[in-house]
């Protein structure tokens, strides 16, 4: 999604009304229930969310000059900076060490990278197809990417072949390096 993304792709920037800010926060909590404990720290009541509309109908939401989450269609997707601050709230999978290199250059994640010994998938029933997952790596503390499941986690375990996660956002991609100012 952010393979190519520069300042030229930004169409408009506007401040979000406080009423809309409230609904946004409610939506975020609805999507990631566990985030509720930290939401007021992540987005303080007094803070000003800024909406940045970009090419391809991508919308970024930033607080204090830091992009916290973004949205392409209906779903809000946290940025890695947000994930690093409060990692517990999102569905998470883990890839093995061999995969890190490829993920950091933006490759989709293949099934074997999620099923090998160093990797970790949640136990059954797992997550459904289409879930936004945070991708962690073996022996690492922080997440390195965010993606969307192209098949359910149970299916990944049984098929174990081909693409399994479509990468949305990873460390070092243009969004990661994007600064609002």
């Amino acid at each position: 999604m952010f393979k190519k993304f520069t300042r030229e792709d930004v169409h408009s920037r506007s401040k979000v009304k406080s009423s809309i800010q409230r609904t946004l926060k409610a939506k975020l909590v609805k999507q990631y229930p566990k985030i509720e404990d930290a939401i007021d720290e992540l987005i303080p009541k007094k803070s000003q969310i800024e909406l940045i509309k970009c090419e391809d109908k991508i919308q970024l939401y930033s607080v204090d000059g830091e992009v916290l989450f973004f949205q392409k269609f209906d779903e809000l997707i946290p940025s890695l900076k947000l994930v690093h601050k409060f990692p517990e709230a999102y569905p998470t999978v883990q890839v093995d060490r061999g995969a890190i290199k490829f993920v950091l250059s933006g490759a989709n994640i293949m099934c074997p990278g999620l099923t090998s010994a160093g990797a970790d998938l949640p136990p059954a029933p797992g997550y459904e197809k289409g879930t936004i997952v945070v991708i962690n790596a073996e022996n690492k503390e922080n997440a390195l990417a965010i993606g969307e499941l192209m098949m359910g986690t149970e299916e990944i375990k049984s098929v174990n072949k081909g693409h399994s996660i479509e990468l949305i956002h990873h460390l070092g991609d243009p969004l990661w390096n994007f600064s609002v100012e």
């Binding site: 992540l42 601050k85 890190i100 950091l104 690492k140 070092g172 990661w176």
Partner: peptide, 20 residues
């Protein structure tokens, strides 16, 4: 409650990913 993550000043990754 929130975690403070240190980012590398050179490559901007969290330091554990510097090797990549």
């Amino acid at each position: 409650m929130l975690r403070e993550v240190i980012y590398c000043g050179i490559c901007s990754y969290p330091p554990e990913y510097c090797e990549f």
